[in-house]
Amino acid sequence: MKFKFIENLTSDVMFEAYGKDLKELFENSAIALFNVICKISKVKTIKFVEVEIEGENIEDLLINWLQELIALVDIKEMFFSKFEILEISEKKLKAKVYGEKISPEKGETVVKAVTYHNFKLEKNKKGYTTRVVFDI
């Protein structure tokens, strides 16, 4: 399983994402995010944007990654459906994100922000798990 949504907040959306390594964890978290923003299965991978993100630690890096993707929707006016982490360390990542221009028929909802509520990022036997809450 790449991710699952968890239901227990009155306002918002919480999900858990999984990955055998950090690369997969970050990619799967981004897929969860765009499952909320748009009809991700219909979003073609026509164009790509290169991103470089920094953080103070791995938790901060994940939050900054998702926050940057939310901002990119507004700035590039694109929906994204494929995420390729090219390089990742505890404090920095480079990625290519693929998608197409926004369109009303492929849109779902605006994610306002990534919150710190109940946030976790854990290493376990199978790899990594993160739990993230979006304000929508």
């Binding site: 949504f5 239901e7 009155t10 306002s11 918002d12 959306v13 929508i136």
Partner: peptide, 11 residues
């Protein structure tokens, strides 16, 4: 004021 989560409402 919401009484149900957005996720629950969608379901």
């Amino acid at each position: 004021g919401r009484a149900m989560s957005r996720h629950a409402a969608i379901k």
